[in-house]
Write a protein that binds this DNA or RNA. Structure first.
Length: 792
DNA sequence: GGACACAAACTTTTT
DNA sequence: GTTTGTGTCC
């Protein structure tokens, strides 16, 4: 029987998760615990063994990518039956629901979905109408506030009641106007998809009953990231059968800022009597040392469900914490390690991911990668779908699909330039208001009665009839045909071609990709339609496209890395104010989320993690001194190697050509390992501090601050140095005594004890070495000093 | 009406 | 370092 062999692939816990089908189930799935495996086998088991029709199963995920992956893997297990499953993101499922039943609550089926830019534009208008000082209340901040309200299913009235304060009062007013404007444009924003779906299910029992009849088994992935609106939706859908299975990991909840509520997974058991709780704690991904570090970090958080990952994988290598001079050197280190390893140890570029806290930090890494000729891919951030030309084309399509969409109309009425400027548009807006018609209709009326100049009238009318005709023609055209027609008839491509700029040639290529995208969509969709394609455009992000990472290093935010795994992971910018982020440091709850974010980053790695922090960093163009992240302190010292670069301020500077050579060497070696030295130095710090003054008085050749001394030397006039050199009795002995003292040599000093050479200054008048002493810290000493011996 | 130049403001994470 | 808005000039 297929079922037996199917579940044989699972461990006991996974199997329990797969076999428990009826009633509420809560699965805590730790990072790398084979969650997707358990889930896909669970669904396969339901269909194959339990003879449950696939259309009775709803699987909700957080990203399109997760949904697609699940579908693919289930298809591999049970074949084409998998196509009959309902699987998708919250947003795509709600969108489908609303296209189908939206009219019940007054939503026309050709609604368009507004993205953030559209929302902001609409809010700007609402603000100007409401006569609010837009300086103090930026549209973006208002958008955030409205969105957070919607996440909690607050309508404008509810918002006004629930949130007090001068800002919220303004928000409530704008919110109300904003909703009205959305209605006028026959548009829904991201959050509305959820809000309206809940409204539909709550107010139309027949619709709800029909859906409950169909969707008898509900499965929700990444449940720790659910917000109240999503929670309510799931609750409604699963209320009849109560076959609700949720999977998540509270330790990986990193979207609280977006309304996600970790409390909802932690209270699932209380909400649903007789919940079966299953914990997947065996990790198949990482080494024990990585898990030790991750656990050491996450255990600091309170209010988490107790669990600890374990693995049968080996201990692995120590994780590395690298201290960089600044962000450029940090990036150079990362690129250097990757280049060296790919060259020497048979890894591929695709084995590496570099994670950072904020998208803006990708820049330095990108240039370091380019410098070393490393192929890389930035995942997320400025997406294909965010590019201006794509959004322009999308605006055309949206307008053609839904002629009421004034935001899209405004965007493209003068793209390419048609001599319809701001003045004309505002007159058209007035006209629309006066006549009580849509902006598009106002364009038609412009010819008759407005006080526009003749040239403008003609331009507007021409625009109107072009859109009108495209709208009428869509009925019997394929989606890709419509896209092509828009590009041609709007004159968009022609304008780009005529400009002759290199950027514009690229834009033409980008638009070509969108045509390809449309063709692919036609081939893959069950019932291709313009509406379906627009939905894809609105709900698909770049992350979902990231399939072909075959041969390049992946650069992405830690957030974007959730759910992914890589053999070797770099986490850069481990500094206070960066990670944890400045704006999360004051609030305990947000700080806990930052910590979880770091946990997510660590647990992406299979074999190795390199963390780095810089002593200095340029932020908004001005330099800042940085303090290492507090999270680094929680890592178990025995699983960490600390490294730094030859050019760190801790090191004396080198002069001449050798500087580059030495730095190259240390970078190639992956930095200088000073773990031992630093640890023991810290242990002996108190003793060292009290004795320091004496030592210095007794030993004049030792400089207290080696990082400064060479600088001072550099500034001396050449004559002084020469004089000193001539006087030096050590000169002839230089070569012989310095040679054995290479970087990394272990030495013993009669007074300072054991140490390790961290750099050699041969270009100086008197050859010197900088030694990190276990007990006394870092000192610069003459290379041929009689008290210094090489240790074996 | 549109293009350009400059100044100012502003920076988290995204379905 | 970037994007966004404002002002000026054609």
């Amino acid at each position: 029987m297929i079922g037996l062999s199917l579940l044989d692939d699972l461990n006991d816990r996974q199997r329990e998760a797969a076999e428990t089908i009826d009633g509420p189930v809560l699965i805590f799935a730790g990072a790398g615990s084979g969650k997707t495996r358990a889930l896909t086998y669970r669904i396969a088991h339901m269909v194959r063994e339990k003879r449950i029709a696939p259309e009775h199963i709803l699987a909700v995920t957080f990203t399109n990518k997760a949904a697609n992956e699940m579908k693919e893997r289930i298809t591999r297990l049970i074949g084409d039956d998998a196509r009959r499953l309902w699987a998708g993101t919250f947003h795509s499922i709600c969108s489908r629901l609303l296209r189908r039943y939206g009219e019940e609550i007054g939503i026309a089926p050709n609604f368009v979905i507004y993205d953030e830019a559209d929302q902001t534009a609409l809010i700007k208008q609402a603000v100007s109408i409401a006569d609010i000082d837009s300086q103090a209340y930026t549209p973006t901040r208002i958008r955030w506030a409205i969105s957070s309200g919607k996440n909690e299913l607050l309508d404008p009235q509810g918002y006004a009641r629930a949130r007090k304060g001068p800002f919220d009062e303004i928000v409530a007013r704008v919110y109300s106007r904003y909703q009205q404007a959305l209605r006028e444009n026959n548009a829904l924003d991201f959050d509305d998809l959820l809000v309206k779906a809940v409204e539909l299910l709550r107010s139309r029992p027949k619709v709800l009953a029909a859906l409950q009849e169909r969707l008898r088994y509900v499965l929700v992935d990444e449940y720790q990231d659910i917000n109240y609106a999503q929670y309510e939706l799931v609750k409604l859908l699963s209320a009849r059968e109560r076959n609700i299975c949720v999977v998540g990991d509270d330790d990986q909840s990193i979207y609280g800022w977006r309304g996600a509520n970790v409390g909802l997974i932690l209270s699932f058991q209380a909400d649903n009597p007789n919940t079966r709780v299953i914990k997947l704690e065996q990790n198949y991904r990482s080494t024990q040392k990585i898990l030790d570090c991750a656990h050491a970090v996450i255990r600091v958080n309170e209010d988490r469900a107790e669990k600890r990952l374990w693995t049968e994988n080996g201990a692995g290598d120590n994780l590395v914490v690298y201290e960089a001079v600044n962000e450029e050197e940090e990036a150079a280190y990362v690129a250097g390690v990757i280049a060296r390893q790919v060259r020497n140890s048979g890894t591929r570029y695709a084995d590496y991911a570099v994670l950072y806290r904020a998208n803006a930090m990708s820049r330095n890494l990108e240039s370091a990668m380019r410098e070393k000729g490393i192929p890389y891919e930035v995942v997320g951030g400025m997406s294909f779908y965010d590019r201006g030309e794509i959004k322009d084309l999308a605006a055309y399509l949206k307008l053609i699909f839904n002629l009421d969409d004034s935001i899209s109309l405004r965007r493209i009425i003068n793209k390419p330039a048609r001599n319809i400027g701001e003045g004309t548009v505002s007159r058209l807006t007035q006209l629309a208001h006066a006549e009580g018609v849509t902006l598009f209709e106002a364009c038609r009326l412009a010819g008759d009665e407005s006080d526009l100049r003749k040239a403008q009238k003609e331009a507007v009318l021409h625009f109107y009839s072009m859109i009108r005709r495209l709208h009428e023609d869509t009925a019997d055209m394929s989606v890709s045909g419509i896209v092509k027609a828009v590009l041609e008839r709007s004159g968009y491509t022609d304008a780009l071609r005529a400009s002759g700029k290199a950027d514009d040639a690229d834009r033409i290529d980008t638009l070509g990709e969108l045509v390809t995208d449309a063709v692919k969509y036609e081939q893959s969709a069950d019932e291709p339609s313009l509406g379906g394609f627009l939905e894809r455009l609105a709900l698909l992000s770049d992350l979902d496209k990231a399939e072909d990472l075959g041969s390049s290093v992946s650069l992405m935010t830690v957030h974007a890395s959730k759910g992914l795994e890589f053999p070797i992971v770099f986490i850069v910018g481990m500094e206070e104010g960066i990670f944890p982020h400045e704006r999360s440091m004051a609030d305990q709850f947000q700080l806990a989320e930052e910590r979880r974010l770091f946990y997510v980053g660590l647990t992406r790695a299979q074999r190795m993690v390199y963390m780095s922090h810089a002593r200095g960093r340029t932020i908004y163009g001005s330099p800042h001194e940085m303090i290492p992240s507090r999270f680094l302190k929680d890592l178990p010292p025995e699983s960490i190697d600390r490294k730094l670069d030859a050019d760190s301020p801790l090191m004396p500077r080198m002069f001449g050509d050798e500087e580059a050579a030495v730095r190259e060497q240390t970078v190639l070696a992956g930095g200088i390992d000073i773990t031992d030295v630093l640890r023991r130095a810290r242990e002996n710090m108190a003793a060292a501090a009290s004795q320091k003054q004496e030592e210095l008085r007794a030993e004049p050749t030792v400089s207290e601050e080696p990082s400064i001394a060479p600088e001072a030397k550099k500034r001396k006039p050449a004559g002084a140095a020469r004089k000193k050199a001539a006087r030096s009795p050590a000169k002839q002995k230089t070569a012989a005594s310095v040679q054995p003292l290479g970087t990394g040599t272990k030495v013993v000093h009669e007074d300072f004890g054991e140490g390790i050479v961290i750099s050699v200054d041969e270009k100086s008048d008197e050859p010197a070495v900088t030694v990190a002493f276990v007990a006394k810290g870092i000192k610069k000493i003459l290379a041929n000093h009689p008290k210094l011996k090489v240790r074996r």
